[in-house]
């Protein structure tokens, strides 16, 4: 079970529901490097819907790089993230860390980390 989806996402009628996700989480106390790349069109419907919901709940498309980009290396042991999303006419590409990411973004990050580990467990 992933984190709670903040509301069921409903795609606008007539718009193809696909989103490309490119996620990387690195560093931390354990120096992990987790990567998850997916196109929601290729995911099970339930997971696709969950990810759309988490993306909407995170407000990630409203964030500006300058809002979240770390100003210096560190602080020590935080995770560092790169996240690119493309959905219809919307695109975003951000770099941030655990401290600079707003709280509402973290449920999405947690689920993407979980999916990256699931892929690794399955040998992908």
């Amino acid at each position: 079970m992933g984190p709670e989806v903040p509301g069921d996402y409903m795609a606008p009628i007539g718009v193809p529901v696909t989103m490309h996700i490119d996620f990387e989480c690195s560093g931390g106390f354990a120096n992990l490097r987790l990567i998850y790349r997916a196109d929601t069109a290729e995911l099970p419907q339930e997971l696709s819907s969950e990810l759309f919901g988490l993306v909407e709940g995170s407000g990630v498309f409203e964030l500006q790089e300058s809002d979240v980009a770390p100003q210096s290396p560190g602080p020590p042991d935080v995770f560092f993230y790169r996240l690119s999303l493309a959905e219809g006419g919307r695109k975003t590409s951000l770099s941030f860390n655990d401290v600079t990411a707003p709280a509402q973004l973290h449920p999405l990050l947690a689920r993407l980390r979980e999916l990256a580990l699931e892929q690794r467990r399955n040998g992908k």
Partner: peptide
Amino acid sequence: GLKYMNAFWDGDEMTFGDGDGEIF
């Protein structure tokens, strides 16, 4: 957080996650 597999010092305080219960 939820299943947060990390601990860090942010310049003022220490923060610890619970891990995912499987790996950490």
